[in-house]
């Protein structure tokens, strides 16, 4: 049977509209069960009025994204943190 969800790479395009960094490459921590893993490993239910990304461990909602004509609604309550990889800010040309 075909899965009724996509992997978290499906978030890359919609989130690229909001964030400068690639959030699908980030590591999230589930607020419900504490499981840590790449955003790309979340289960994304896209056949819905918005995108609903769920933890692969406990199936609780980690992230929701609704795009109206003039706004994006982003709910990250289900994520304790997002660890977002950034280029080295301490080396030559760094801002720190």
């Amino acid at each position: 049977m075909q899965a009724d969800y996509l992997d978290g790479n499906a978030l890359a395009g919609p989130l690229a509209e909001i964030f400068a960094a690639d959030v699908s490459a980030a590591v999230s921590r589930c607020a419900a069960c504490g499981q840590t893993g790449p955003v790309a490993s979340l289960r994304v239910y896209d056949r819905a009025p918005g995108l609903v990304a769920r933890c692969p461990g406990c199936e609780e909602v980690v992230l929701r994204l609704v795009r109206s004509p003039d706004s994006a609604w982003l709910d990250l309550r289900g994520a304790v943190t997002l660890r977002i990889p950034l280029r080295d800010g301490t080396g030559p040309g760094g801002q720190r």
């Binding site: 009724d4 969800y5 239910y45 056949r47 819905a48 009025p49 918005g50 609903v52 769920r54 199936e59 909602v61």
Partner: peptide
């Protein structure tokens, strides 16, 4: 009859 769902059935 499209099937929409925000999570597992």
């Amino acid at each position: 009859f499209p099937v929409l769902s925000a999570g597992p059935t």
